[in-house]
């Protein structure tokens, strides 16, 4: 069952978001994969940063709360209502 999920992407990606606020993206999604697919559908320029051949590439991490989803169920990790996903490049800054 889909949950209401908040997604936070890096402010430096603002130019790829068609002026959407990178701190207030919201969707209905049952899993991390569904949330990312929504994000890519809404903002296609994010696609190479978020998925490669349907997998989460090593240059991007997704945190569910404080946990890296690679340490949970990966893209299949289920989401609860009110969950927050933080998208964090593997190299931040510089």
């Amino acid at each position: 069952m889909a949950a209401t999920v908040w997604i936070i992407v890096p402010p430096a990606w603002r130019a790829l978001l068609n002026d959407a606020d990178p701190g207030s993206l919201r969707c209905q999604a049952a899993t991390v994969r569904a949330a990312l697919e929504w994000l890519i559908a809404a903002h296609p320029a994010l696609a190479p940063r978020l998925l490669q051949d349907g997998r989460l590439p090593r240059w991007t991490n997704i945190f569910l709360g404080e946990e890296n989803i690679r340490d949970l169920g990966g893209l299949g990790t289920t989401l609860r209502d009110g969950a927050t996903l933080t998208v964090l490049p593997a190299m931040a800054g510089g």
Partner: peptide, 15 residues
């Protein structure tokens, strides 16, 4: 700081 850096703090290492 930029939210990116708050998100990275405690999770990543310095290069």
């Amino acid at each position: 700081y930029d939210p990116l850096y708050h998100a990275a703090a405690g999770r990543y290492m310095v290069v």
